[in-house]
Design a protein around this nucleic acid. Structure first.
Length: 829
RNA sequence: GCCCCCGUGCCCCAACCGGCAGAGGGAACCGCCUUAAAAGCGGUCAGUUCUGGGUUCGAGUCCCAGCGGGGGCACCA
């Protein structure tokens, strides 16, 4: 609300501040002073506050406003507590929206990108955020992506980046491949188009090499990471224990190896299934069945991922014409191909045990294949396959007898036996696949590899990095299924760095998640030219102490960043293997119970809210709304109420009449106690991320101070000054403009954000007396004012002496007295 | 289908280790102030803490079952 300060003589009207004037005044001061620049060489203990850097799509919106407001509370709080705080900001500035805008507007993607960055940066300044602007970075700057390329080269040196041909996820809308993590329910995570499959040779990062560690270290993160993120990552990595078992196939030297989590059921394996789209299927298939297989494969290819994902779809498949030998029963079992077996999980083939696996049961029922139960179902069991625990049956041959054993025991017995016979071995499997990083689009990091007809894949030498993007714009960028870079002849044709012969650059660009997998390291030494980051400085700042951002990155960015950190540790560049100590996921800002969207027309414009209520009131509203993880329904919030509160707080500063620097000792003891207890509790609350309660406690302190001024100690009492100054400091966590103005009004030099936080005096925390509750049979019968350090015996005696208590007992025999000094006594009769 | 989180007054939400259910805000209503309104100040209102059981001297809090809401995984052998 653009309020004008009323004239001094206004009668009866409460004095109000002008939010717009304050914002202009203090922003100028902050821009000049840059009070939040972190010092690498500070002797103070370091803290690293990080918020997920934004993609520059237009201006900031309500979601940004929330996450930045929450994040700022922590960064500013740490500064108050005496830490050297690094609170950097930058932009994740490669990506498709800029490219699509460039095609639409016949311009270069950088135009859109850097214009939006400037808009957002200005909005952030306006929003009063405690960022260290000296560390600002953009992933699309050549100075940054040079090091992204350097890292790719190092990954290749370590065998962690490789090319392979396989069926990959293809987004027909964005005309590029996608990583598994970017496919949600068979649709593109970005644009929602239905994903199809393509057979392509693409670059991968070998993240599966780190699967065990990525999983194992989640245990330690459980204490400080949101539960749902840890769970999502565990599910995504998907570790399972089982065994490889080999089946001899007629007319073939190589046995058919399968992965199973139930080696105990091998006696019940009555057929085998190979993934229809795996090369293995065609290889095993007899000549007379080739035609049938080909027809089936064509049918499978036609089915979309979305159809494939429907678990209630009837089973389909085709017999491959061959049989294999069950290694424990000697039975000849048919080998089939089906799309319910996945080519890229395990060995791409399974032993089918219909008695113990529902999917196998359905397949067996459909194609009339035999079922042998190897676990005894309970007497009342009415299902089909029995997947529960029970005694093994039908599971013995001349050499081994599992009958009567439970599932766990049978597994423990059969695996060593299989190993001793050379028929298989215990193994661990993961659902996690390698990270596909190639993208067939322009606005990303060029892959620094040259393809040479004689030397093969050759790294671009370090001294030739960065491989900069060629200047393409508008129609040059139109998706054609191959990277636009491939058509830039001048750029793509190069001499081989190894032999000097004619060669071609790799024309794909990297997934933008590569850029964001290490930006938090670059912040530590953003201008370093000797490598991606200065190890000494970076190790001094890392880990990130609190990482705030959206939960949509639970498995994407957060898993990739953990992977990069571990690799960099193994390269000797980092001491830590886990980048993010603690993490917080904010909820969404919604409106009228629904996500804001153009189609619903329920969007709330951040700029309009800021114009109407001021930055401070909007920030306060977002922080006060509820726990940070909860969604905020803006229609249920009251920014005008927030503004009212801020006006009330600000008025306190004008009422204080004592001089700055007045010693609070001797001031109103009750108010001093309230002030110190508030600060003490706020400390606990910020550490626990209960920022909404921080605001509530600040409100209480304002109320108490108001009361002291009007009807208590009066405006000259030194405790009133102490309280008002504390209000200004607490408020600066959330409402920096009005806090700064209060601080100045109280006679201090700027900036309140750099002032010294009230040291909590433990003597002021103890109250002179506390109310002890006396219960009889759990019902409150008396309240006693007692000393906080009263002994249990004294409290009990006082309680039993109370008239009301005696009346409640009424001569009945006291069976037990529970005493919790100094707060409670419970008499049981 | 499996796993995880959440259910407190009309609304948003507090409540530390199991100890008086209510801190804060919003809404509504009533006063004071005002010619009047807004602002300001003061006050009022509300409950089987989703339901049912259990543990305990004592349960919003712990355990079990259910209902409702949200999320993750899901043909991964």
């Amino acid at each position: 609300m653009t309020q004008t300060t009323p004239p001094e003589t206004a009668t009866g009207d409460a004095e109000t501040y002008d939010a717009v004037a304050l914002q202009e005044k203090w922003r100028r001061v902050w821009d000049e002073r840059e009070p939040f620049t972190a010092d690498d060489d500070s002797p103070r203990e370091k803290r690293y506050a990080l918020t997920m850097f934004p993609y520059p799509s237009g201006d900031l919106h309500m979601g940004h406003a929330e996450v930045f407001a929450l994040h700022d509370v922590v960064a500013r709080y740490w500064r108050f507590r005496g830490y050297e705080v690094m609170n950097p900001i930058g932009w994740d500035s490669f990506g498709l929206p800029a490219e699509n805008a460039a095609i639409r507007n016949d311009e270069h993607p950088s135009t859109y990108t850097y214009a939006n960055i400037e808009t957002q940066a200005a909005s952030m300044r306006h929003y009063g955020l405690a960022f260290d602007w000296s560390r600002r970075l953009h992933t699309s700057d050549p100075e940054y992506y040079r090091w992204t390329q350097w890292l790719f080269t190092k990954f290749r040196e370590r065998g962690l980046a490789y090319r392979k041909n396989s069926a990959v996820n293809w987004c027909p809308q964005d005309q590029t491949v996608l990583a598994n993590e970017q496919v949600v329910d068979g649709a593109c995570e970005r644009c929602g188009a239905e994903v199809t499959k393509r057979e392509l040779t693409q670059w991968y990062f070998r993240i599966t090499d780190y699967a065990e560690e990525l999983l194992g270290e989640l245990d330690a993160l459980e204490a400080t990471w949101p539960n749902r993120v840890v769970t999502a990552q565990r599910n995504w990595i998907g570790r399972s224990e089982g065994a490889h078992v080999s089946f001899v196939v007629e007319g073939r030297d190589e046995p058919l190896r399968v992965y199973t989590t139930r080696p105990d059921t091998v006696f019940g394996a009555t057929f085998m299934v190979v993934a229809a789209d795996a090369p293995l299927a065609a290889e095993l298939c007899t000549d007379d069945q080739q035609e049938a297989l080909e027809a089936y494969r064509a049918e499978v290819r036609r089915a979309s991922d979305i159809e494939r994902l429907a678990t209630d779809r009837p089973k389909t498949g085709v017999f491959l014409g061959v049989h294999a030998t069950n290694p424990v029963t000697g039975a000849q079992v048919p080998v089939w191909a089906s799309d319910y077996v996945l080519a890229d999980y395990g060995t791409g083939a399974i032993m089918a045990v219909p008695g113990q696996d529902q999917r196998d049961w359905e397949f067996a029922a459909r194609f009339d294949l035999p079922v042998i139960r190897t676990v005894q179902p309970p007497a009342d069991f009415e299902g089909e396959a029995f997947t529960g625990d029970g005694a093994a049956i039908n599971s013995a041959n001349d050499e081994i007898d599992l009958d009567g054993m439970g599932v766990a025991e049978a597994k423990a017995v059969v695996i060593p036996w299989l190993e001793s016979k050379g028929l298989g071995e215990g193994t661990v499997n993961y659902r996690l696949r390698d990270w596909l990083l190639s993208r067939q689009r322009y606005w990303g990091v060029p892959i620094p590899v040259v393809h040479c007809p004689s030397c093969g894949e050759v790294d671009v030498p370090e001294d030739q990095l960065p491989v900069e993007l060629p200047e393409l714009r508008g129609a040059d960028l139109k998706p054609k299924g191959v990277s636009p870079l491939a058509a830039a002849a001048d750029w793509v044709n190069v001499d081989c760095p190894s032999c000097g012969g004619p060669a071609k650059r790799d024309s794909d660009t990297m997934d933008t998640f590569v850029d964001s997998s290490w930006y938090f390291l670059r912040y530590c030494s953003p201008h370093y030219t000797g490598g991606p980051f200065d190890p000494a400085v970076t190790n001094a700042w890392m880990n990130v102490d609190l990482y705030i951002g959206g939960v949509e990155h639970a498995v994407l960015h957060l898993l990739y960043a953990r992977f990069f950190t571990k690799v960099l540790r193994d390269m000797g560049l980092l001491e830590t293997g886990e980048p993010f100590g603690a993490q917080l996921n904010q909820g969404f800002v919604i409106n009228q119970g629904k996500k804001m969207s153009k189609s619903l027309g329920n969007g709330v414009n951040l700029g309009a809210q800021l114009d109407e209520f001021g930055v401070d009131a909007v920030r306060l509203t977002l922080v006060f709304a509820g726990p940070p993880e909860d969604d905020i329904d803006w229609s249920e919030m009251s920014p005008s109420g927030s503004l009212r509160f801020l006006q009330r707080a600000w008025r306190l500063a004008g009422d204080v009449t004592s001089a700055p620097g007045t010693d609070p000792a001797g001031g109103d003891a009750a108010l001093r106690s309230t002030t110190h207890r508030t600060v003490e509790e706020v400390q606990r609350l910020v550490e626990g991320h209960k920022f909404n309660v921080v605001v509530a406690r600040t409100m209480e302190l304002v109320n108490a101070t108001r009361k002291a001024i009007d009807t208590g100690a009066g405006p000259a009492d030194p405790a009133v000054r102490e309280a008002a100054e504390t209000v200004a400091q607490l408020l600066s966590l959330v409402a920096p403009y009005v806090a700064e103005e209060m601080w100045e009004r109280l006679g201090h030099e700027p900036c309140v954000a750099q002032s010294t936080w009230l040291g909590v005096d433990p003597a002021l925390l103890v109250q002179a007396s506390v109310t002890a509750v006396v219960q009889v049979q759990g019902k409150v019968r008396a309240r006693l004012e007692v000393s906080p350090d009263i002994s249990a015996a004294d409290l009990e005696a006082a309680a039993m002496a109370d008239e009301g208590v005696q009346r409640a007992i009424e001569g009945r025999a006291v069976r037990k007295v529970v005493v919790r000094a100094p707060k409670l006594v419970n008499v049981v009769v």
